[in-house]
Amino acid sequence: MATAGMRRGGTALTLVGLAGLVFVYWMSFFWVSTEINQGVVQRIFYVHVPAAWTSFMAFGFSALASAMYLWLRDDRLDRAALCAAEGGLVFGTIVLTTGPLWGKIAWGTYWTWEPRLTLTLLLWFIFVGYFMVRNSTEDPEKGKRFAAVVAIIGALDIPFIHMSVIWFRSLHPEPVVAKPDGPSLPADMLTTLLTSLAVFTVIFLGLFLYRYALEGLRAEADLRSRSTAT
């Protein structure tokens, strides 16, 4: 019953999020002003930054749930960590593909080994490793524990990614929103960005619930197959 509720809730949230995404696309193409230096390519900002925020949130949540799983050994926490890690990987892939498309026009190159790009790619690979470690042991419980440790280590990379543009010489600009003296973006750009952030978060939450319903059903199927075997 809980699984069915989550599935319905997840579907509803995802549909709301997708409608919001259409609105964000409209804002980005027809409402917000064009940035004076970079021109039209700066519009990638309105999907690139929210995708980065969502992936960091997902990976952070995965690490938190993993830490709690190691402490409480509750399978629901492990399932939540798994679902969040999958979402983080999807949104992380968006970051790592839309960024180079922007970089080619703005910097003249698709990729450069500057700190923020390198650390983001490292984070993505750590969470690919999360799934590999999880499925590499014969004992599923051991796999879950190892994967939980990988998720915690991976999440330690997130503050470094945020601070890398301040600590190191970087092609990325310094933060324009999350900074001590407040955002320095024009009002229409900030509105579009915040709307997009909200929409990406809603989409992630919707798909997370939908994915969690799948894991709940899988646990139910495992339980049934085990009780049939005994």
């Binding site: 519009r43 999907v47 498309l101």
Partner: peptide, 11 residues
């Protein structure tokens, strides 16, 4: 423009 459209399509 193609880069913007490609990025939005990837999303």
């Amino acid at each position: 423009y193609w880069h913007v459209f490609a990025a939005y399509a990837i999303v």
